[in-house]
Amino acid sequence: MFREITLGQYYAVDSVIHRLDPRVKLFGTLIYIMSVFMAGGLSGYLIVTMVYMLVMKLSKVPFSFALRGLKSVVWIVLMTFICNAFFYTGGTPFIKYGVISISAAGIKYGVAMSVRLILLVLGSSILTLTTTPNELTYGLEKAFGFLIKFHVPVQEIALMMSIALRFIPILIEETDKIMKAQASRGTDFDTGSIIKRVKNYIPIIIPLFISAFRRAGDLALAMESRCYRTGYQRTKMYPLKYTKADGKGYLVLMVYLLLFTLAKCTLLYTGNSGFYTM
């Protein structure tokens, strides 16, 4: 059953966004994050939300599927809201009790921060929803390829990432096996104090480490026997090649960034506070 785990949250469907080069998508994610940080006020958030909706529509990923990515950050969003709403000291508080002060401005600020966080998570999840982990690794390898000049082993790091991706399901399965083996010898994982329960995981972690090292040794031999050597320029079966669509993608992103910055600067200059402040 553990073999069925899909890594990341790739949603397999053919769309304009899926076909884009991973480097374009990486760049796009960066620009989107920048624009979310620049945005402020109702109009700003409306624009970035609409951009998100548009890209989602293009990517053909069902919105409900994308929302699942929010599950893991729901507590962080909640904490952000509480911290901002209860401890905001700027506005005029209508409830004040010790350090807690709740004001209209604080609640507004908390909502804004939470929205910003949600948009950041949703926006960047488009990248992982439409790009396979492999493409992503290779995209990162290419995007950071310039670091080779500074003697950073980019190719090796990328290969390490892809090997890690391949072995995660295998190690999860192994953990499951070891847990069952230890449980059958009487290890109790579910009762006792927190410290006791953590201690109970030691007989799982040690065999897991030993087996992982053994696997690593085997794998290194297998790689060497297949002519792998470090510091030697490898080639790729499917090298990344920019298409016309990628060019258009870059263009759209640049225009978006330019317009967004322009709007922000104009509003700053004219002193229209609605767009950028709270």
Partner: peptide, 15 residues
């Protein structure tokens, strides 16, 4: 080594 069958087969020639 590869994450797909095809990629693994290509590992040697790539090297």
């Amino acid at each position: 080594i590869g994450t797909t069958v095809e990629e693994d087969t290509a590992f040697g020639p790539e090297n």
